[in-house]
């Protein structure tokens, strides 16, 4: 089974202090560590697991500058066979444009399954995968936590809200957006990454794809980004137990928890 997996490099932000860029529509990325988007990491692992059990190939694709080849090399080290980087140049991208670019490249490849992460941990929009599916005319499912190929079909598990999963059968070729926790991504050693340098990595500039200007025009635009209100140290709540308790309940409710 041939699998294509789309990956993206994103800044790691969990413990970082984010600074808004001068234009006010993005963040300063200089001090941030770039890494593979967490969801994509699971998608690559899933692709490699499928290859290991079913045979076939895995191709990893990303759109990004040459630094983002790191995530491709990582995917290669995990077990992907070849990698493609599409260089967008200075173009402004949104989920729609990204899906159009990917579709144009993937259209000419051999595959039974396309995997993406559910979303990327930068814009958190979670639309590229399913847009790509629709553009390619593939069957699709989002937030997938289980894939078992069964001939022309695959039995899949989708994670719904509130502790419920939905099991269904889907016709291949298909596109699935992969949810974290579907597997345990393997550790990728530095040596493994260095060795993966020998595998095939193709670079395609976006300009060579012959996409229409309409396809390359973003449908949405970030006008402004802003920080949530700042918190500093603990605000001590004083008083007798009863008033403290009342205050705590008020705070908890304010934070959107119903008790």
């Amino acid at each position: 089974m041939d699998v294509i997996v789309c990956v993206k490099q994103v800044p790691e932000v969990i413990d970082a202090d984010l600074k808004i860029s001068r234009e006010g529509t993005g963040i300063e990325k200089e001090d941030l560590v770039m890494h593979i988007n967490d969801w994509d990491n699971y998608a690559v692992e899933e692709a490699v697991c499928i290859k290991e059990t079913q045979g076939g190939t895995v191709t990893a694709i990303t759109i990004g500058d040459d630094e983002s080849e790191d995530v491709l090399r990582r995917a290669l080290a995990m077990g992907a066979d070849k990698a493609i980087r599409i260089d967008p140049g200075e173009r402004e991208l949104d989920g729609f444009v990204i899906s159009k670019i990917l579709a144009k490249v993937i259209k000419d490849l051999e595959y039974h399954l396309v995997l993406t992460g559910v979303q990327a941990d930068d814009d958190n929009s979670g639309m590229v995968g399913i847009m790509l599916a629709e553009t390619l005319g593939l069957s699709h499912a989002a937030v997938v936590t289980g894939v078992e190929p069964e001939g022309d079909l695959a039995r899949i598990r989708v994670e719904l809200e509130g502790g419920m999963d939905e099991v269904s059968r889907i016709q291949l070729p298909s596109l699935l957006t992969i949810q974290t926790g579907i597997n345990e991504p393997r550790y990728v050693s530095i040596m493994g990454i260095r060795k993966a340098g020998k595998k095939e990595l193709t670079v395609i500039p976006v300009a060579n794809l012959g996409l229409s200007e309409d396809d390359l025009t973003p449908r949405t635009r970030i006008e402004e980004v802003f920080l949530p209100p700042e918190t500093t140290g603990a605000e001590m709540i004083e008083g007798d137990a009863a008033s403290v308790a009342a205050e705590l309940i008020k705070i908890i409710k304010e934070k959107g928890v119903s008790i």
Binding site: M78, E184, Y187, V188, S189, M191, G192
Partner: peptide, 13 residues
Amino acid sequence: VVEDGTQVPLLLS
């Protein structure tokens, strides 16, 4: 074990 990668305990990885 580390080079293989699939059996590295989560906390360690």
